[in-house]
Structure formats: C-alpha cells, structure tokens
Nucleic acid binder design. Structure first.
Lengths: 212, 212
DNA sequence: TATTAAGCGGAGTCCCCACTCATATTATTG
DNA sequence: CAATAATATGAGTGGGGACTCCGCTTAATA
C-alpha cells in the first residue's frame, strides 16, 4: 500500500551491471513465454530454468512472483500502446488519411488479436490468482491511460471517416477487443470460423443499425 | 442419462443415504459459489467450510478436486442447455412463432451473459489450472453436444425469420457468447456501457453489411 | 592487477493444500 | 431397538512452490 517507487519495469536509469541488465531481460522474456504457455500458475522455477538463470536471480530482480507477473502484463500493455501509436503516426504521415484511418483501426484490431492469441487470456486468469488487473491499474494508472488514449485516437479518426459507428468509446472498444480475443481462442473453431467471427464483431462496430 | 427408472421399490444405483445425497448437493452448491468467487484456485477446504461439511466428505463425493470442478462446469453447461431448450419449447407453443424466434434468441443471449457474469470467467481460468475444458469435452461429449444442438435450434429459427445473419453457425455463436461474457465482465465499464457493448455485438450478428 | 561490492547460485525453510485413514456417528432395515 | 453398513469427521501426510541466505563469482574501477 505505502509502496514507494522502485518501479518494476521502465526506470533503468539505475546503473545495473551489464550482466544484471541482461539477466533481467532474459527473465522477463522467459516469464512472458512461460506464463503465456502455462498461465500465471506456472512456477517461478520454471521461469528461472527457461531463462537459464537460478531462482535466486529471478527474485533479485522481481521481489515477488506478483511483481514478475505485473511486469509482464505491463510489458504487453505497453507493446499494444506502442502499436496503436505507431499506426496513428503512419496515418499522420500519409496524404490520403481518410481511407487509412479506417484501415489503421482494422489493422490494430487484428494486431491485438494476434498479440493476444493464446497469450492474453492469462490476463483474465490472473484476476483470481493473486494479482489483479485492477490492482495494476491502480499502481500504474499511466499504463492503462496511455493505451486508452492511443486507442481513442485511432477510434476517433476511424469514426470521422464514417467507418466506425460513433456511439462507442475507447473503453468499450477495448472491452470488445478483450472479448474478441477470448472468442477467438475458443476451442473447437477452425481458422475460417475464427476469421469469420472477427468479421461479425467488426460489422457490429461498423454499426448495422444507426442506433440512436 | 441416469433418468429415474421404475420404482420397483429397489432404489437402483442412486442408493445414497439421505444425508449423503443432501451433503453432495451442498458441496456442489458451495463449490459453485466459491469457485465463482475465487476461481478454481480456491482451496477445497474453503468449499468444505462453505458447505458446512468436513473436508473428508468433500473427497468422499468427489475423489479429486478436478472432479469437483468438472462437476461444477458440467452443471453450468447443463443449466445453459436447459435454458435454451426451454426457450425453444416456448416458441413451439406459441402461435406467432416468427416474431418469437428472434426474441427467444435474444433472450438466450442475455440469459447467457447473466448466468456467466462474474462466474464463467473461471471456465477460462481453469484452462490452465489442471482441468481443461477440452478435457471435459472428451470425457463428456454429450454435454457439449447438447448445448451446441440447443443453441443450434434457437439460432436456425432466428435466422429463418431474418433476424440473424445466416452465415454463422452454432459454434461461432457460442464462441461469441463466451467472448461477450468476457467483454461484459471487463473492469472499468459502467452499466450503460455494458449494455451498449452487447447491442454492438448483437448488431454484428444481425448482419450489418450483407458480407458476401 | 588488485580491490570491492553488485550479482549469482542453489540448497534449505516454511507454509499451503490436495488427499488419506482410523475412529466416531448415523440412516436404514428387520 | 439392535445390528450393521454407509457416512462423516478431522488430524495427519506428502509434495510442491514461493521466498531466503550466504558463500562464491565477476563486472567495474582505480
């Protein structure tokens, strides 16, 4: 609660020894892989093994398993945010912005699904596994806000070109993306059905009936 | 399948002692509640406590924690199936079936969300928690099939009346329902946004643009 | 190269939890 | 009500996993 500072991810201003920085990175990568594959219930030792590091090292960099999971989640949210910002910038740079705004939104949609595939469901799983997404929102409000804003930019532009209905906000779109990922992961669907499923959802976003 | 057969005075297989049957039921209820609240990671002791029973009793009725979780999941799937069948029967009984077929589908859609709320996410969570939904499908193929069929009936009729696009199947609808539940649970949305989200998804199912 | 402190390794501690078993209780039956 | 078989109980067991500790290693610096 009275937690002070030592943020988990970004501030690498602290001069870490070369090997330390390298190991920290390896651990993060390994954690991402392992938790994606086995969920947050995977043991810390498994992460250490995958990173080619001793368990003591894992705990040196992340004082708690929860902190490790949090770092992974933040990393993913940050990646998605960067993706959204990148797409928005690409639209800016282009002359024929109108057509691209719609395309950019769709690309982001699919990119989200892609990045989430078999992975992000664990974000939902960890809700009841000690760490809570809500908690991360509290301790790192900026991460969520940035994602929200970045999605908001893409959304607003796509709405302006008429591609996307105007009665939805960034929060709703994000929720929809989360749901779409989950639906997409649903067992028992083949590739065609998965793709089709996404088109159904996107059609909903295009606004079949001018509700209100 | 264990339908009550003749009562030749001989309590067939179900010859559980009265208290045993009662306790079994209590445990199932408690498990449903507890797992809904804390996810499948909740301890068996917690379930026992909630059921007002000793831990030994829990294991007498369900030899494994996994078996207990499985029983809860099957119970829910069965409940959803019954709900779908009930709605289909209601349409049958009505004269003005056309209008009702569409309404029945929508009611089922909302009913699913309602029954899943804050609950069913655990079905996704347990995917990586030992038990796997896929596994239950293998050991109890009939449960999944019945649900699929029941949804199929509602869907086909709604499509026939023109309310729902014809290029989606029961599997896709179920996946969409799962995703919709997940989106609906998403933190950071108020009641209005949640409702709105569902309408967006349903609009997609209505087929905004006659794609293909 | 010598010095030194940051880092690392990994065996060990502690706690939690699924599951068992010997004993006590109770529904059922005649 | 007695007999007995089915149940319930709950302390106990075993294993796994998060986290610690301290001696050894090595990057950084003069």
């Amino acid at each position: 609660m009275e937690r002070q500072t030592p943020a988990t991810t970004a501030p690498q201003r602290t001069s870490l020894r070369a090997d330390a920085r390298r190991n920290r990175e390896r651990v993060l990568e390994a954690a991402d892989t392992v938790f994606s594959e086995f969920g947050p219930a995977a043991s810390t030792e498994e992460v250490a093994r995958r990173a080619g590091v001793s368990i003591g090292t894992v705990f040196r960099h992340f004082p708690t398993k929860e902190a490790l999971i949090e770092a992974v989640v933040i990393g993913r949210l940050t990646q998605l945010t960067a993706e959204a910002e990148r797409l928005a910038d690409a639209v800016d740079a282009d002359a024929d912005a109108d057509a691209d705004a719609d395309a950019a939104f769709l690309i982001f949609f699919h990119r989200w699904i892609e990045l989430s595939a078999t992975k992000y469901q664990f974000a939902g799983a960890l809700s009841r596994s000690g760490t809570d997404v809500q908690e991360i929102r509290n301790t790192h409000p900026d991460v969520g806000r940035k994602l929200h804003d970045a999605v908001g930019v893409l959304l607003t532009r796509a709405q302006h070109t008429g591609g996307i209905r105007r009665d939805v906000g960034a929060s709703e779109v994000i929720a929809l993306l989360v749901g779409a990922s989950r639906a997409h992961e649903h067992v028992g669907l083949d590739a065609d059905q998965r793709a089709h499923l996404l088109s159904v959802i996107i059609d909903g976003l295009r606004g079949s009936r001018p509700a209100t």
